[in-house]
């Protein structure tokens, strides 16, 4: 059974915002099929009644107090940005109205 089809790869790439060329898609159909096929091993195990691990540490309620701490100077915030106008991070015009 082919575990993964090209359509699956394309759907997942869409969710992950990746563009893949044809060769890479083909390659991933094979690789992901193999790996996911291997992962199906887990179905051998009966996990009824087993709680999923949320955290290996049994910690709860780690908080900070509601106190304002200094923010970054704007120059430092924008320092690594590919495109800015000195105030905003600039991205290609967003057409979709939110």
């Amino acid at each position: 059974m082919a575990k993964i089809t090209k359509a699956d790869v394309e759907y997942v790439a869409g969710l992950a915002q990746l563009t893949l060329d044809e060769a890479t898609k083909e390659r991933l159909v094979g690789e992901m099929g193999d790996i996911l096929g291997y992962m199906d091993k887990l179905n051998e195990l009966d996990t009824t009644g087993i709680e999923p691990t949320m955290h290996v540490l049994e910690m709860t309620n780690v908080f900070r107090e509601d106190e304002v701490t200094p923010s970054l100077p704007r120059d430092a915030a924008l320092m690594n940005a590919p495109k800015t106008d000195g105030e905003y991070f600039l991205v290609p015009r967003i057409l979709d109205t939110e």
Binding site: V12, A13, L15, M32, L42, N43, I50
Partner: peptide, 25 residues
């Protein structure tokens, strides 16, 4: 790609949730 797949709708329980249970084991 693999991580997106195992979390995607329809596969979460079979992969991600299952793995977190096996992790407990």
């Amino acid at each position: 790609m693999l991580g997106t797949y195992v979390l995607s709708s329809g596969y979460y329980d079979a992969y991600y949730l299952k793995a977190q249970k096996v992790r407990s084991l």
